[in-house]
Design a protein around this nucleic acid. Structure first.
Lengths: 141, 141
DNA sequence: ATAGCAATTTAGCCTTGACTAACTTTAAAA
DNA sequence: TTTTAAAGTTAGTCAAGGCTAAATTGCTAT
């Protein structure tokens, strides 16, 4: 606040878009830790090949992404071995899973077809603030 | 359908993520045509400097994006002059503005603070399917 | 024990969308 | 009319997130 653009609220959109760009930067990370968590729960371990199949990307792309997640402290991995979540990754995965659940259930509760809700929730979940999430959740009670 | 992954619905997520990636590719385009439309409506013309200020990016970034929008047929522009929407751009802008309005009004209607709703709508609008949008809209009646 | 296949990694390429720095054009003030 | 500031453009860089092709590793069945 205090800059010239804040005088007119109609023109003060830059912050909104800056936060939007931040959200984008986090999306792939969130989707990966969530999926790695799912794979460990469902299949006992998270392998590159399973991530590639579920995201619909190549193994090379998965490899790149896992390196970045490792660099950023969300996962650990050793060459030719499966992938593990760190504490940090585990925490994020849990938060994302819960958020996904709330968004999905909310959409279904207002009458969206479950298949469509699954689709939309995957995109929407990354852009729902804590406050909006609480409103969604309160509507499920 | 018909591929091996479709046998187990839990594992058939690739299509969801492919559509999510498509949505991302369209987001910047949608935000720009919407903003260009707003600027023309509010100020009579859309200049690079105004786009840069409202999105919170540099003039160089705006320039790059406008070139891409021009390549893709959404806008026309001549060097050192203001930017115009084509028919195609106009149509998209109108659709986006309407979608934004519905998402925003829906969030406010369920109790989200207007400032938060403005924030969240900017991210959510790109990930709401036609069907979910209709459900949102029907709830506003 | 090893041959061969599946999984993983590496290398190199592309586009998008961001940046800075330097340059050019336009338009307004002196 | 000239100077100068604002606006726009260009060039070069970077990271993310895709891809293909080729090399390497690990596992399994013979």
């Amino acid at each position: 606040m205090g800059d010239d653009t804040s005088l007119n609220p109609r023109h003060n959109k830059a912050e909104v878009f800056a936060r939007l760009r931040d959200a984008h930067a986090r999306e792939v990370t969130e989707d990966y830790v969530e999926m790695i968590g799912d794979l460990i729960a469902e299949e006992g371990e998270a392998r590159s090949v399973a991530l590639a199949e579920r995201f619909g990307v190549t193994a090379a792309t998965v490899n790149n992404t896992i390196k970045r997640l490792e660099r950023d402290g969300y996962v650990t991995s050793r060459p030719y071995r499966s992938i593990f979540l760190t504490e940090k990754g585990e925490t994020l995965a849990k938060k994302c899973r819960e958020r996904h659940r709330i968004v999905y259930n909310f959409l279904v509760s207002i009458g969206v077809d479950p298949a469509v809700a699954e689709f939309d929730a995957e995109g929407i979940e990354h852009h729902v603030s804590e406050e909006t999430l609480r409103v969604f959740d309160s509507r499920l009670k």
